[in-house]
Design a protein around this nucleic acid. Structure first.
Lengths: 468, 468
DNA sequence: CGATTTGTGTGTATACATTTG
DNA sequence: TCAAATGTATACACACAAATC
């Protein structure tokens, strides 16, 4: 029996001792999970320290460690040595982002589409592909990672971005997200740790959670992740990989400067991390942003998986992304492709190939850049007071909020007045943060007028609520 | 110090005590991994019992448990309570099967293609799809799990097989393998156990290994898995799921009889297992094999994920499979789809849809069945002495070998004389077996004459070696 | 058929590292 | 700057279950 009675001490979570069944650690974990999903324990709430709860339940404290660990691996809670254990910001809801839930009536500023108005150009070129003499050859099991001429076209496309490789080290897969799933399954094991920006691509967060990869958030500034913070984390924990979106981080729109790329690369080399470089937005950066020199892949080809999706730059529906990698990763990546996809449609890859080789892809990308520019100009009209930091052509903006909102509440409030938008909590890779933002997609409305309507309504909402 | 000197006792594996660094369990695991991948420890070799090795190294035996566990989760070894720990049959090599490695010159009886000679019919219909007024609508992010009319076409296709559902409970994904990857990530957690036939689809074995799912092999007879054995295993271990290919098991060609389906279903219901029903070969069975009544999905829709790929029946290159599931799994499966694929190409799905609705898909399937019949007849000419058991129209055959071969050796011997074929060890889900087989693909040669040549050469090889 | 062998599951003890004040 | 609070990592003890002989 515990020596002290804890009835008088306040403890944020007190499981009923009588509900405990053996095995204790499983029992405690499921009680905790219930109370979090019930909403009894709110996001950010502090749990009792392991030793205190153990004393209360009269068991060894490492049994609590194990129970907490189960919930942590499910993404329900996170522990910070020295401070305590807390309920994760997105414990009780799914933050996966897809086109499935787009409301039919409202204005969508949540899901980031890709200015789909250029798809008629894609539609126009398809008959040309279909008339090729070798169409039948595109319909069988051959060349599961891409036909060599398709890979060469991909290299061709990526050449202006600074990528220099060969078809042997390229794979064509079914989009950037698919590439990430492949890279994670190929190169990481359950329990591995990957560092990310504090705010990062929420579907990567979900992916990592699914594969039981722990994300470790690292602080950054306007030039990207801080190398010293990265190094500090590498020294203190066993880190296996790093996920970055150097050309335009989703959601923060931050671009990693060339100097920063070099500094980060040297830490990555030193600690032998695997770099997942998602460079989907490079077409908005290379040749446009003066500081852009090259992808990080160039600086460290043997430790990097470079991912260049065509959904944002060329066509979102054809699901084609290029993966570029060094010799060391090749066999593992191929194996993961065969396990997850078997192959990616050669027909779809051929259409993208034709768009690239005919110059139409460049034309499409250029139109999308123009729309991005126009949309960003409109955004500035409404949110002038916030100096525009980050990428000037981003398909989305990152709006700082002046006060604390309840993230779920805010999203559903806005949904009710016909605006979908995502609160920054969805993009939190680990612990809660006191700063709040909204990610506002500029590329998903049917017209610029619709975008104006949405931004106007959003602005009114924020003005009204910032004063409360 | 250990009391006895073990120098005189034989122990199958003796790591050098001086090589051990702290932490011990990691150190031991990596030494063991090295000796297995080196080939120093051959597949099937028995490792020292945990307690014995612990005594030898003068540490606690549960530390050995942890070291062994790491290697087991990598698929290098497996433990059998009461008997010991053994090196896994496929520890040192990858058994993933893909079209990538097909030798250009030899005759391919290894990879199972799908009589690609019918692809011209697919090619002929593509222009019709491309001329549709709504082509542009197929090129964006919408309807990530399939457009409703495409899902209805899929249900249409599966109706003769006995599937009865609605578009809300169907998802279109990128092939059967992709469906399996989605189902496994959606519904299972790291460390979960799934039972399979003793010999099962090798890419599922690899997939399971990647996601750290333990496969538990269950014995079967000519009608499929034995319900009593399944029940016994469920009683004794915590089993989470079951993977079956009822219409034609790959590689054994066994069909699960209707009675057996019912018996197995009642065990699956009783222990609340999740059934992954890969019914890719149903088009060879429904309406052809008199015993065929219905898929297991019908008997247990809320616990089943039904997977019906079109690669074998319609077109292998378009990468379209249908997943059908109950309400309970819907949200989880959608989430996994968004994490792994985002979406599957609507263009590819539309081509399959058009083939189904125009009746061309049925025509293609019918041709493939004719080729399968012809190929099986040829097979019988060469391997007459083996009474043909299993599916009569299977795209591959399962040839029992009369003596023990070295699996890797045999495959590479045959490769040298221009024949690719797979030894049964590739398909072993768990422990080694004393019976040996070859899986012989009948659907991958360009012509039936080429098939004859391959089977003749194979027969000569076997006759020559069976006498040794 | 029961004792023995052997792997598995669960709770515990201890050393350690980081954060906080 | 250091001690206290707190989470993490590793090794161990013990009860149990299945297979073997």
């Amino acid at each position: 029996m515990p020596i002290n009675s804890f009835d008088t001490y306040p403890m944020s979570w007190k499981p009923n001792k009588k509900d405990l069944k053996r095995p204790f650690f499983l029992s405690i974990a499921s009680l905790l999970e219930q109370d979090i999903t019930n909403g009894f324990l709110a996001p950010g709430a502090k749990l009792p320290p392991q030793r205190e709860l153990a004393d209360f339940l009269d068991i060894n404290f490492t049994t609590i460690t194990r129970a907490y660990k189960i919930c942590e691996s499910k993404g329900l809670i996170y522990g910070v040595t020295g401070s305590g254990t807390f309920v994760a910001p997105n414990a009780a809801r799914s933050i996966i982002i897809s086109a499935e839930k787009i409301s039919q009536n409202g204005i969508d500023l949540a899901f980031v589409a890709s200015f789909e108005q250029s798809n008629h150009i894609v539609a126009e070129i398809i008959p040309k592909v279909v008339n090729k003499s070798y169409l039948e050859k595109l319909l069988n099991y051959s060349d599961p990672t891409g036909i060599p001429h398709q890979k060469r076209a991909g290299l061709n496309w990526m050449e202006p971005f600074g990528i220099c490789s060969d078809p042997e080290h390229v794979a064509i897969v079914s989009g950037s997200q698919n590439a990430l799933a492949i890279a994670v399954t190929a190169l990481f094991k359950s329990g591995n740790r990957i560092v990310t920006d504090l705010y990062t691509y929420s579907n990567f967060i979900v992916l990592a959670k699914m594969f039981n990869i722990h994300l470790v958030p690292i602080a950054g500034d306007q030039d990207g992740m801080l190398p010293d913070e990265l190094e500090r984390q590498c020294r203190q924990t066993n880190i296996h990989g790093i996920f970055l979106m150097p050309s335009c981080c989703n959601p923060t729109t931050i671009m990693i400067s060339d100097d920063r790329k070099r500094e980060l690369t040297s830490v990555i080399r030193k600690y032998n991390l695997i770099l997942l470089e998602d460079d989907t937005h490079v077409f908005l950066t290379a040749g446009i942003i003066p500081d852009y020199q090259q992808p990080m892949f160039n600086l460290l080809p043997e430790q990097t998986v470079y991912i260049c999706g065509t959904a944002k730059s060329i066509c979102s529906g054809l699901r084609i992304a290029y993966m570029v990698f060094g010799d060391a990763f090749r066999a593992k990546i191929f194996k993961a492709i065969f396990s997850i996809n078997v192959k990616t449609s050669s027909l779809d890859a051929e259409i993208i190939t034709e768009l690239i080789l005919s110059g139409k892809a460049a034309e499409i990308a250029s139109r999308k850049k123009q729309w991005a520019q126009a949309s960003n100009a409109i955004y500035k009209e409404y949110f002038l007071e916030h100096e525009l930091t980050g990428h000037p052509l981003s398909f989305y903006r990152w709006l700082p909020l002046k006060r604390q909102y309840d993230a779920t509440q805010m999203e559903s409030d806005l949904e009710r007045i016909g605006i979908s938008v995502f609160h920054s909590n969805r993009f939190l890779s680990g612990k809660a943060s006191s700063n709040q933002y909204l990610r506002i997609a500029l590329s998903s409305t049917n017209t610029l007028d619709e975008l104006r309507l949405g931004l106007e309504a959003l602005k009114q909402y924020i003005i009204r609520h910032d004063m409360e």
